[in-house]
């Protein structure tokens, strides 16, 4: 026993373990409580971020070239399909314009200021992705300097992909909705069910085997069916209302048979993100 503890290596290992656990708990505490990481960490991240752009920009350029070529090969089929949708789209757009103007006028008349739906977008490019199977994170090239704050929702292509988790001066980390961490991604969302009944809830977990977002603890009796659209509800926090999340793919009972559990197919492809926009509520 005496010899065991007098070993210098063992002491080093124990000290390393203690420091490691201490640092981990500290960074989790900071992530949960504070809006920005400590200044030293921010500074370091900004410098590394700048250096990363030297490597990341050509790599992303090459990737972009490949994607463009792939798209070119699919152009004909896609064109056919899109042509049929264009007429429909113009009609919807015009209607949308008229409705939003009407909405504005009515709001003015009623003296209602900004509601939950209003938001502006900041566009950003993805620099890199965390090489880890646990933290589904990407790093984008805009930060505090551009007005980004923690917990803001991030949109790519058709819908929501995640929230801002850490903000530095010139770059920030975005946690994707495919992250399975216990303390991330508690979005308030709503499902527009049949008979236009709205069901409110929050995202409770993510099924990584099937790529489905799970919305749990729903006690409402409104009937939901496959294909119903899911959007953010704007309740609680900085996320505006009306950001498209995905469509309902399965509705089941939870483990105890008391509440409903809804599986949602995310609208955005979480594994092919080049450009994102961060939504800032008015």
């Amino acid at each position: 026993m005496q010899k065991f503890f007098s070993s210098r290596k063992l002491v080093i290992v124990v000290i390393c373990l203690i420091v490691s656990f201490g640092l981990m708990s500290l960074s989790v505490a900071i992530r949960d409580k504070r809006n920005t990481p400590p200044l030293v960490q921010q500074f370091g991240n900004d410098i590394v971020g700048f250096a990363d752009r030297i490597v990341a920009t050509p790599m992303n350029g090459i990737h972009h070239g490949f994607v463009s070529t792939k798209n070119l090969l699919n152009t004909y089929q896609e064109n056919q399909r899109l042509k049929s949708k264009v007429d429909q789209l113009t009609q919807t757009q015009v209607k949308d314009q008229v409705l939003s103007r009407e909405n504005k006028q009515l709001k003015r008349q009623l003296n209602v200021g900004n509601t939950l739906t209003g938001y502006e977008k900041i566009n950003a490019a993805v620099i890199t992705r965390t090489p880890s199977s646990w933290a589904s994170q990407v790093i984008i090239n805009k930060g505090q300097a551009s007005g980004i704050k923690k917990d803001m929702p991030v949109i790519a292509g058709p819908g929501l992909i995640g929230t801002v988790a850490e903000v530095n001066k010139t770059n920030s980390k975005v946690v994707l909705i495919s992250n399975t961490a216990e303390n991330s991604n508690r979005f308030a969302i709503q499902v527009l069910g049949d008979n236009s009944k709205v069901v409110n809830g929050i995202i409770t977990s993510y099924d990584s085997a099937a790529n489905r977002i799970i919305m749990g603890n729903i006690t409402s009796n409104a009937k939901l069916s496959v294909g119903n659209r899911v959007t953010t509800s704007g309740l609680g926090g900085v996320i505006p209302k009306g950001i498209y999340v995905g469509t309902v793919s399965k509705v089941t009972q939870d483990d105890y048979g008391l509440a409903k559990k809804v599986y949602i197919k995310p609208a955005a492809n979480l594994n092919d993100i080049e450009v994102v926009s961060v939504a800032i509520r008015d």
Partner: peptide, 10 residues
């Protein structure tokens, strides 16, 4: 840790 995961000490 600092740049990719944001979780120090791993």
């Amino acid at each position: 840790d600092m740049y990719y995961t944001g979780l120090l000490g791993v």
